[in-house]
Amino acid sequence: MNDAMDFLLWARGTAFDVALTIFIIGVIIRLFEILSLGRPRSLAEPKGNQLLPGMKSVISRTLPDNGTFKRQPLTVIAGYLFHIGLLISLLLFIPHIELFNATVGFGWPGLPNPIVDAATVIAITGLLAALWNRLTNPVMKLLSDKEDYLVWLLTFLPLLTGYLAYHRMIEPYPLALGLHILSIELLLILFPFTKLMHTFTLFLARWYNGAMSGFRGVQS
């Protein structure tokens, strides 16, 4: 009778604690694993600065170059739709902000729900387009392994369950909310051990690329 509420309590309690713990430990391990390998300082005479071009690349790689966009508009657009939609629904939905507030001790203003709702639809559309692309684009098809599809699913489920819970399309509500939270826990647990890590490491990668180019006086 009360299974749904028990499930929600478990998802909000024990399961969340476990998932968050694995996530934090895992991410730190991964970052240590990467940074411990170091990068030897070059003895060549620099032609430019490393820090600023590195920082610039961190930001500039967010925008595609024109040629790439023209050749693969679907990859670029689906990527934008998904990432922007995800960031809005993840970071600007009031209940989520309350969660961050409880975890890190500070919050920020959110967006009205109808906007977040639209962002979620956009993110889901983007993800579906990305999956279609992955299944049909010969390059992506060849590159993709099981992990790529797993990561897709791990990202898709929280968006889907969140949407269904918000619109009360799963009953009872505690079950819907519980499923949503559980799907995020699944994501958190697998995050450090999959390509989801790119969320953090892309800043390192972009910085290294920009810094190494900057050292040689190249705009990257």
Partner: peptide
């Protein structure tokens, strides 16, 4: 708030770190 997990998250997070 409904979306806030029930455990002691900040404490758990510090232990995890």
């Amino acid at each position: 708030a409904l979306s806030v997990p029930t455990g002691e998250i900040s404490r758990n997070a510090s232990y995890a770190i």
